[in-house]
Amino acid sequence: MLSWNEFLIDWVFVYGPLSIFFIGLYGLMTQKNLLKIVISIDIMDLGVNLFIVSLGYVKNGVAPIYTSKNLIFIKNFVDPLPQALVLTAIVISVAVSAFVLSLTIKIYEKYKTVDIDKLNTLED
């Protein structure tokens, strides 16, 4: 019988984010609409970010904070670095999303379509 902890680590923290990632990938492989492609990328972003956050998980972990009152070194600190990294990654993905959405608008303005098949014939 799977313990709750193993279930959490394996299925929620690893396979969960990965499956979200693959859903995004599936979207990229199948969708022909630019907006849907943008959404697929965002889904992939989400999956990766969740994966990063989940790697920092430590069972019964506490916040990795030293204060002047609490100078004791505690073994089950949660790793703070992935959380710091994920912030950067999220910022970047937001920026990219914004950019790519504006590109989509521009493309629509220029070609009056967001369908990939049509765009391929219009611009190569």
């Binding site: 990229l28 630019l34 992939m44 990063i52 790697l55 992935p82 790519v100 590109l103 493309i107 611009e123």
Partner: peptide, 23 residues
């Protein structure tokens, strides 16, 4: 714009892969 769009999509995928590796 459309070629830039392709570039963005492909680069973002690349970036995600790289990030997974780093982490």
């Amino acid at each position: 714009y459309y070629s830039a769009f392709k570039y963005v999509v492909l680069s973002s995928i690349g970036g995600l892969f790289f990030l997974i590796g780093v982490i």
